[in-house]
Design a protein around this nucleic acid. Structure first.
Lengths: 343, 343
DNA sequence: ATTAAAAATTTACGCGTGATAATATTTTTG
DNA sequence: CAAAAATATTATCACGCGTAAATTTTTAAT
């Protein structure tokens, strides 16, 4: 490694005693050269410090090894966690993932797609903002760049969608809550950014009616992505009203529930399933922090593993087949009910 | 925009009635061409859909507009938040930041630096893993690429360091805790990954001695980045021993404190400063979730704004001056004590 | 108006790699 | 051991742009 600097592939080919095209082939696919040749290259790679120039490589290549991962809000541990999982799998598959977050801003989401376009990625994994997304622009993007949507669906857009079955989430939490006590009230934001929220509300109504209970929904105000704060304020206001008609509450998502628990704690309302508690609270997502709330949060867990692995698989499949899939398929994964202490 | 496709800068220069190098100059700095020329280019830009090829641009350029942002663990909301802040500022300064996370793995940290090297970034903002970092490799990297360290310092490495003054953190929390009650015990991991942890412990000892109290430290076992879990287990074990000699505890960082609070809640130990509480708990960092713990967490807050803005400023300054600064300077920002309900 | 200086533009060349076709070499097979 | 198949080499071109030097145009000064 202390040997004279290697400037380019030409020089590196020289010191390894091969021609440049052969070395080029090796870098594009090490298995495409004879084992003996491969050995010579890898030996030279040990002795000399050479890395192909990324920009020169990608400039004239039909398809780069880049993968774009786009999420709505990377500072949300839920997305951070799933992005981490996906990133890892892309690297394992020999690709170079880059992460992007639109931080809740539709304009930035589109900007990211523009940037991504000029990055000529082999594929993109996109968790769109949802309601506020510029669907026309995203649709245009998906026509040019092989894209798999995950987490939140935009009807008909992208080559495939991989996400969670919201009905399964709510069905399990509602059934559990009603089985061990009174039927739950549904606690959500009035204008949720994420389309999953709407599906969850509808599922709640459907499941409640099936079970012969009247659905009751509390809608709280708030904009943006500070869900804990919104949930806390909403819960403080709601609990202060004293109109609680049941002992059970189902939050649309864990971040609202975290805010709710903070509010309940401040008001001295004990939450849990033990006799000393006046309220049971369940939620959906299994946020990374749900295990550390007080009390720990009973919630319907995403199948993180399946969602991330199948998203990546779909994407690789899409790349293999040249960017087009015969038909857009949607794959949904059921929740796993995680019983903790809040309900 | 419906006009014939523009393939490259040559064609775009043609339709705007200019030569390619002139157009090239415009894209590198719109102010470097005559206003009348600029107008012609921007008009053509409206009519035709052309974007310069990123790879071709960067291949033959001495300095790209890329900025690398590297953090130890992006799924930690603290780093996610500060990375978001830094990212935004880089974009505002006309650069193209890319975020990387080593997810606690020293090998991956080095891999990221290797990748970054071939990305030829104008500068890098690096929050190193700390104790486990491969310091020799990082030092080598910093010699070739203009790098500013932030959050956790590696002595003598990088062109500058911007972080928080750990003494100020601990000084404020200890002083506050002793002022309103018994002197605190220090709760930390036995082998902390982050060098800030060591500085905080030393500061705790120093401040306690200055105030005439005997420092008492509880070291808990655990490896990796699941601090809440480690804190919770450690607290459960510690509280079960019943060797609590004081009513006040200072956690090394908020994530440990979050775990501690979860443990206390499960054990039925009320934490806070009201008469019905048996324990006061304070911490350091002002983690984004510290407002939503039960009780809400009294903590010494990082000056997020200053750390991120000065980091970026230092970096821009470094780029301006051609990658070298006259001397390595370290800039530390004091904490702001945030009083909430836990102490 | 003339001319020198400054600014803007054009000419000409190079960057490091991918890709392809024709040829040469090596390895495998019958 | 010869023929066939697989692999490597040689020789070129293409890619889309940056950049220094040369040239033209514009501006400022006389």
């Amino acid at each position: 490694m202390v040997n004279p600097r290697i400037k380019n592939m030409e020089e590196f080919a020289a010191v390894s005693g091969l021609s440049r095209p052969t070395v080029s082939k090796y870098f594009n696919d090490p298995a495409s050269v004879r084992p003996s040749t491969r050995q010579r290259i890898e030996q030279a790679l040990d002795e000399y410090d050479y890395h192909p120039n990324i920009y020169a490589m990608n400039q004239n290549r039909k398809l780069t090894k880049n993968i774009g991962i786009v999420v709505p809000y990377l500072a949300d541990p839920f997305f951070a966690e799933i992005a981490r999982n996906i990133e890892e799998r892309c690297i394992a598959a020999g690709f170079r993932p880059t992460m992007f977050s639109s931080y809740g801003d539709p304009a930035q989401e589109i900007e990211i797609l523009h940037l991504l376009r000029s990055l000529k990625p082999a594929g993109v994994l996109l968790a769109p903002l949802g309601r506020s997304s510029d669907k026309l622009e995203i649709e245009k993007f998906c026509k040019d760049v092989p894209t798999v949507l995950f987490d939140s669906n935009l009807e008909g857009i992208g080559a495939a969608f991989v996400g969670s079955d919201n009905y399964s989430f709510v069905n399990q939490t509602v059934e559990y809550l009603t089985r061990v006590g009174e039927p739950p009230l549904f606690f959500e934001m009035r204008t949720p950014a994420n389309p999953n929220a709407n599906k969850r509300r509808n599922a709640y109504i459907e499941v409640m009616e099936r079970l012969g209970h009247e659905p009751k929904i509390v809608k709280i105000d708030g904009e943006g992505w500070a869900f804990e704060e919104i949930g806390k304020r909403g819960a403080l206001a709601f609990l202060a009203e004293g109109k609680l008609t049941t002992d059970a509450i189902l939050c649309s998502n864990d971040r609202l529930a975290i805010g709710f628990l903070a509010a309940a704690y401040e008001l001295g309302i004990r939450v849990g399933r033990t006799p000393d508690c006046s309220l049971r609270l369940a939620s959906n997502d299994d946020h990374p922090f749900a295990r550390f709330t007080c009390p720990s949060l009973t919630t319907a867990a995403h199948d993180y593993e399946s969602v991330s692995s199948v998203s990546v698989e779909k994407m690789l499949q899409l790349i293999e087949s040249g960017g087009k899939l015969p038909s857009r398929d949607e794959q949904l994964f059921a929740a796993r009910l995680v019983l903790r202490n809040s309900a």
